[in-house]
């Protein structure tokens, strides 16, 4: 599983779910902070007409964190003021680079993706009900 895919699953996860799954790892090697969870801004860029010149829409609050775990640097950037989630994601990123823990981290990423898929399926279900079915506008007596 590519690093970007793992990091995406971590960033999009619900904080409780991620922390619970990371807790299931048991003992992990000690780590030191390269950067404690730090709040900051990411200026969101968009494209005019959804495709043309980029423009700056406004800033989004984000948290970043970096750890050194057994010589592996783990990084995480997540939206919002989420120090615990960010630390968990940075640790996961570092552990993914350690052959001993990599399979576990990939499993966690798959769990998170499945969790996301379930939530999304529910959302789609509700949204689809609001889709206009134009055929129902034609009453029996108006049908040709």
């Amino acid at each position: 599983m590519e690093r970007q895919r793992i990091m995406r699953a971590l960033a999009l996860s619900r904080e409780n779910t991620l922390i619970e799954l990371m807790g299931s790892l048991g003992d992990i090697p000690p780590f030191e902070y390269l950067r404690r969870p730090q709040k900051g801004l990411i200026m969101v860029k968009a494209r005019a007409d959804a495709k043309n010149q980029a423009f700056n829409l406004g800033e989004a609050l984000a948290t970043r964190c970096s750890v050194n775990l057994n010589g592996k640097a783990g990084h995480a950037y997540v939206l919002g003021d989420e120090p615990e989630k960010c630390l968990a994601a940075a640790l996961a990123d570092a552990l993914a680079q350690d052959e001993r823990f990599r399979p576990e981290i990939e499993r966690i990423a798959l769990c998170l993706e499945a969790d996301m898929a379930r939530a999304r399926a529910l959302e789609v279900q509700k949204t689809q009900k609001t889709k206009v079915d134009f055929f129902t506008l034609v009453r029996g007596e108006d049908a040709d």
């Binding site: 900051g40 990411i42 968009a46 959804a50 700056n56 959302e123």
Partner: peptide, 23 residues
């Protein structure tokens, strides 16, 4: 509040074509 925060940088442009539109 925004003025007191550090800027990390600029994002990649968002792709509204890939939006999970709920409307």
């Amino acid at each position: 509040a925004r003025a007191s925060l550090k800027r990390f940088g600029y994002s990649e442009p968002i792709e509204t074509a890939s939006m999970r539109a709920r409307r």
